[in-house]
């Protein structure tokens, strides 16, 4: 099976543009929408990587759940309007060159290293995934449920209005 690299370039360009847009928008709601777009595009990357299950989960978790959570939080709070510096930290100018240089250097090093990669796609079928997730990694999976429990508890603890007793 021979894939053309063109779809990858299109999708990854979309990912990067949406990511930058997300950071750039002053209006939070636009940022959130860019984020949704970005996550959708990433789901596309997963499909290219032969990981449909992950792509599906990506759509469900990021595009649906987390984005809605973020949008709710945005709507629960009021936001100010103003010039650029009200939204961007002044140090962002200082950090930019560092991030760019480090990003380029690390990208170059990590993306030119000689990995011992195979020629064919290796991601297993979904049944195998299920076996891995619920058998081999059953213990961390259970612990993950505790992580989510703590998160729910934390959200309630911090955000819920106190019942007067």
């Amino acid at each position: 099976m021979e894939f053309s690299p063109i779809p990858f370039y299109i999708v990854s360009a979309l990912v990067i543009i949406c990511a930058i847009a997300m950071i750039y928008f002053k209006e939070l709601i636009y940022s959130a929408l860019s984020m949704v777009a970005c996550f959708m595009a990433i789901a596309g990357i997963y499909i290219l990587l032969n990981a449909e299950l992950v792509a599906g989960a990506q759509v469900l978790i990021y595009v649906a759940a987390i984005s809605i959570l973020v949008i709710f939080a945005i709507m629960l709070t009021r936001h100010r309007k103003g010039d650029f510096w009200l939204f961007f930290h002044r140090q962002s100018v200082v950090t930019l060159p560092f991030v760019v240089v480090a990003g380029i250097v690390l990208t170059v090093v990590l993306a030119t290293a000689a990995y011992d990669s195979s020629e064919e796609a290796l991601n297993p079928p979904d049944e195998e995934m299920a076996r891995l997730l619920f058998q081999d990694y059953s213990f961390p999976f259970e612990v993950l449920s505790l992580v989510l429990l703590v998160a729910i508890m934390g959200a309630i603890l911090l955000a819920m209005r106190e019942r007067r007793r």
């Binding site: 990981a51 299950l53 992950v54 989960a57 990506q58 978790i61 990021y62 759940a65 987390i66 959570l69 973020v70 709710f72 939080a73 290796l122 991601n123 297993p124 195998e128 995934m129 891995l132 997730l133 081999d136 990694y137 961390p140 999976f141 993950l144 992580v147 989510l148 703590v150 998160a151 729910i152 934390g154 959200a155 309630i156 603890l157 911090l158 955000a159």
Partner: peptide, 24 residues
């Protein structure tokens, strides 16, 4: 094969939890 994908599911769970706590 597929351990990386499994890892990703754990990161999914975590990001949901982080979002909840952070937004809280």
């Amino acid at each position: 094969p597929g351990r990386g994908e499994v890892f990703v599911f754990f990161v999914f769970g975590l990001s949901a939890a982080e979002a909840a706590v952070g937004l809280g």
